[in-house]
Design a protein around this nucleic acid. Structure first.
Lengths: 253, 253
DNA sequence: CAGTGGTCTAGACCACGGT
DNA sequence: CCGTGGTCTAGACCACTGA
């Protein structure tokens, strides 16, 4: 009975720190406001910089903060809802999409993709690269893989590569009747090329959306879309209308 | 011209390390095999332990590794596909679901939830807690919020709380005609209670699936499901049949 | 250029799991 | 009890941004 209430759970410092900071963000900071730099913050809380960073990392992961090298740490706006085509789906080229085709090449499919498409390992496929922008900032980078067999009528009129070619392939695809599609969402980290498109550092957390498109009893195409996990909330809407609003969040003056 | 090809991109050590380890996992390790401990690995690669850990953390985030305190680091099996009811949806109580009700209480809705349900801030709602298990391991923890108004005929026969009560509320909900539903997926970090259900440490990365259920022109219920991001790939199947298989992955002997 | 976040080091101690 | 991963420290240097 000598000791008075030995804390059974010595909460990690960075965890407690995260809580404190989170509450401060709600009550004392406006969206877009810049925080004190890491060295000052660490000193203010009496912890090492590495410990403070552990807390900031979590908050960034949760979309509460945005950090940029050479600039500083700012309070992030609430995540934006990004619609991921639902409702029976449509081809990736469908009108009204927010994607911008960047390039298209005829290359060997990565092993992973070849397996899903049920193709030989190094069968050439059209590989379309495109980006998606929402509210003025990049939110996703996507690779669409289309086996040559899926678009047999593709003419050689257009350039063999480049954005024009990408649009041509998607147009051909659109002529097939879509029998269904399939989606999977998982956590990943951005590859170097995707990171550049998304204006993030390599390794940044992303939500990877893999979609299979079925036509003529086969898998006619596969797309792998990489969404910024820090700024995006993927929405799959069956019911239209109301938007989900998150977080308190005042606006910066 | 004194310098010969100054490397324009000095790749971070942990990034290179991650690549090397990733390739080693593909070629030299079997699923379930345990890796050398962190101190040995760090020494072997000639880096500080913190740097090695940065690489391991990323690999764990990608679902390639599993680390457990007091035990060690093991090679993770490919992520399991976890179906998130698609196809026009159904009530959370629908038969054949893999959820196990744990508890039910009548409490004030969190601000966040109250907003989505369009209720006054501290309006009492039935709060059901349930867990989902797949392949013998916990994959998700969920909170279902049901306004009292959505289940007016709920009798007081059953206990006022506990799993029986949870089932009773879900049963009542099932009697309403579901007009539609709405889903959002985003990245989060596990709260302490969810972490315990999921057998992870607090702060572990999770995929948060927020679903709104509509009936009688209103939002009749909201569920917030927290999936382990390291072990799960959420699937939204429109087309049945084939499974997506990932990764090389031999089995441990 | 100065100031920011990003990387890295070489230690230390702690909490947990199994023996 | 020992060995594991988890937390934490106090430094250092680098890469990038913007003035």
């Amino acid at each position: 009975m000598g000791t008075t209430q030995l804390e059974t759970v010595p909460e990690p410092k960075y965890w407690h720190l995260k809580t404190v900071l989170s509450e401060a963000l709600d009550s004392e900071f406006a969206v877009g406001e810049i925080l004190p730099n890491e060295r000052d913050l660490a000193a203010r809380f009496g912890v090492a910089r590495a410990t403070l960073r552990q807390a900031l990392e979590q908050l960034e992961l949760e979309g509460r903060l945005q950090r940029r090298r050479g600039v500083g740490t700012t309070v992030a706006p609430p995540r934006m809802g990004v619609a991921v085509e639902s409702d029976r789906g449509s081809w990736p080229g469908a009108a009204g999409e927010a994607w911008q085709a960047v390039d298209c090449e005829l290359t060997a499919a990565p092993a992973e993709v070849a397996r899903v498409l049920e193709l030989p390992a190094d069968e050439p496929v059209h590989t379309i690269r495109r980006n998606r922008v929402s509210n003025g900032q990049p939110v996703a980078a996507e690779l669409v893989y289309v086996p040559a067999a899926s678009v047999p009528d593709l003419t050689a009129i257009d350039a063999p590569s480049g954005p024009a070619r990408a649009r041509a392939v998607l147009r051909e695809l659109d002529r097939l009747s879509l029998e269904g599609q399939d989606r999977a969402v998982e956590l990943g980290s951005a590859r170097a090329d995707d990171a550049k498109s998304l204006d993030r550092l390599p390794g940044a957390p992303v939500l990877v959306v893999t979609t299979r498109f079925f036509a003529a009893g086969r898998t006619a195409a596969v797309s792998v879309a990489t969404y910024r996990a820090d700024t995006c909330r993927l929405t799959f809407g069956d019911a239209g209308g109301v938007e989900i609003h998150h977080g308190p969040g005042r606006q910066a003056s």
